[in-house]
Amino acid sequence: MNMTLAGGLSMIGNIGNAGNVAQWALEWRSAMLRFAQLHLQPREDAEDAVQDALAAALGVRPDAVAEGDPRRYLFGILKNKITDRLRQKYRHESSSLENFDDDLDQILFDQRDHWHAGMAPAAWRTPEAHLESDQFFEVVDICVGKLPKKVARVFSMKELLDCEPEEVCGTLNLSKADYWQCMSRARKQIQLCLTQNWFEGAR
């Protein structure tokens, strides 16, 4: 999506949904682009997905749009556009071949498969108290950003795009065993990262 589309939409604002969508493009484009960039690189691919989503929003009955919640509506379309692009991108690739270096278990567990001394987790204190903090979400962002690429793709499809495991496997062309490995790695790594960078700190 570029400003040309937003500008064009505002000029034809009284036709169908164009007025709504032009307003949404101004209000929501940055958030949509930020979200799309979590899943699609380079940035141009993410921009194209946002543009596709806004263009698709033009096609829906105006009364249906007026009654709905724009965030849910726009991000619902965007998620479908992102998933379509991921499916096209990975259709001919075997993600199973793209292994990540899963050394985290060696850090967490000893040879008897018990927690290593010093790595055993302690329960987070009042995690719900941090859910309004922008600073906390900056740390979540950093932790998610540190995931290995393949793990990040699987994790973000499941947790951020709300895809079912079968859809994740089908889209990224990977086995169920690979999926479980990636999800496990992601949740372990993010928990460890948040523990070390937020909950153990004096915030």
């Binding site: 979200f35 719900e128 951020l160 928990q191």
Partner: peptide, 19 residues
């Protein structure tokens, strides 16, 4: 913590889509 992480991720998703 893993249960709390689920709540964190739900809030994170909402945070990401906040204009």
């Amino acid at each position: 913590n893993d249960e709390a992480l689920s709540a964190v991720l739900t809030a994170y998703k909402s945070h990401l889509t906040d204009p």
